[in-house]
Amino acid sequence: MLDVSRFDPVFDSQRVFRRILGCMARPGKVDFLVPEESGFAPDRAVVVVALTLLDEETTFAALGEGKDRLARFCSLIAGSRMVPSGQADFVFVSGAKACPEITDLCRGSLLFPDRGATVVCRVAALRSETHERGVRLRLRGPGVKGEASLGVAGLARENLAYLREANNEFPLGVDTILVSADGRVACIPRSARMAWD
């Protein structure tokens, strides 16, 4: 089981939420979820996102590598219910391998677009400039002054194409929180227009 002993449910979740919000409001912005020097386990960033946003009112699905461990964690610690990925409020995916299920996630309805899923996608690294090992995303839309650049390592180009497909009918779509193994976060809300090299 993942370690939650150092997570303060009041103050850590407030801090983590504000950072996620800062990134959701400014696509392309990269922030730290956990202190860089703390020597956390690679999954710690995913864990703090789950502890901040999930509870017994929410449903989730876990896909890709490490899904069983994450599923156990979300049901037991966060109290969230596991459902098929097409119905889940939160979907945890591993970015490195192609995940075609992304195109079948809940995108909300025109009456209630807010019911679209939130994708929590694990990647290797996030940088606001180009990352030498990764793909460079160019983002436009609300929250971006002109064009924002986001360097992501460990995110398959197929998954970017799936995300773009899931979000091609605004206001329907999914909102993505990218969390990296080195504890950083960046967001791609459905309102963002996305291109990559």
Binding site: I20, T52, L53, L54, D55, D114, P189, R190, S191
Partner: peptide, 13 residues
């Protein structure tokens, strides 16, 4: 938590 989840959706749409 509930309000925070709603805020994130409000920002996305």
């Amino acid at each position: 938590k509930e309000i925070r989840r709603r805020i994130l959706k409000a920002v996305a749409v």
